[in-house]
């Protein structure tokens, strides 16, 4: 059975890699299989990790006391959970063209919730933490514990942050000193992107090596 799995994985890997030559029947087969299976898997996952624990179980717990023959011990306390379930059901209004507009309500709640949750986190991580990281080394400069290279790095960091931020000023024309400051900012950005590019490419090469290793050792190794 394990050998069967290795063969399937190897052949599908080769089907996907055949795209490097050009679009072909094998790639199309692997692509459609991949997309179809991922959708099927996603649906099963959504039912088990989303629908059952967050919709069906709270719904059943809320309506169970009102079911004929069931003792009414739980009372009304669980009924409020029907509100979010009802709001979620509005997503299905897209099925009826006349009622599609109802979809705006759950969408607005979701976007508002997402923005409310993410904005303070963005402020904290991207602004507060960045500001602290830029300023903090100067405490060590004051204490005299930073080497000459460390002082250079601290100053470079301040210059980089200020110049890069200047590039992202949109409501003023970038001319005169502002133009040059933002050009330095872009240079800092490109240096950063260059290093990130190299770093990620190395990671991708590692993934390729892993796949080639699978093909050579696990697959071809299983034949000979």
């Amino acid at each position: 059975m394990e050998i069967f799995g290795i063969w399937i994985a190897a052949l599908l890997t080769l089907c996907i890699y055949s795209f490097l030559y050009k679009d072909n029947l094998f790639y199309r087969f692997a692509e459609h299989l991949f997309v179809g299976m991922s959708v099927g898997y996603g649906i099963v996952l959504s039912v088990h990790q989303g629908f059952i624990p967050f919709a069906w179980e709270p719904f059943w717990a809320a309506v169970k006391p009102f079911w004929p023959g069931v003792p009414r011990e739980a009372g009304w306390s669980g009924l409020w959970k029907l509100i979010p379930i009802g709001v979620g059901l509005l997503f299905f209004s897209g099925v009826s063209p006349r009622h599609t507009w109802l979809i705006r309500y759950p969408t607005a709640i979701l976007i508002g919730f997402g923005a409310g949750l993410s904005i303070p986190n963005v402020l904290r991580a991207n602004i507060f933490e960045q500001t602290r990281g830029t300023v903090e080394p100067f405490a060590a400069v004051h204490a005299g514990t930073l080497s000459g290279w460390g002082i250079f790095e601290a100053v470079l960091m301040v210059i980089g942050v200020i110049c890069t931020l200047t590039y992202f000023f949109f409501s003023v024309e970038h001319r005169g000193p502002l133009k040059w400051i933002s050009k330095v900012g872009i240079a800092f950005l490109m240096i950063g992107f260059g290093s990130a590019f190299g770093n990620t490419v190395m990671g991708r090469v590692a993934l390729l090596i892993q796949r080639v290793d699978f093909l050579i050792n696990d697959w071809i190794g299983s034949i000979f």
Binding site: I16, F19, D23, Y27, R28, A30, E31, F34, V35, M37, S38, V39, Y41, G42
Partner: peptide, 14 residues
């Protein structure tokens, strides 16, 4: 298309 990252990439490429 699909929620899976690389299946999505394969589909868009197609």
């Amino acid at each position: 298309l699909t929620e899976d990252q690389f299946a999505y990439a394969a589909g868009v490429d197609g």
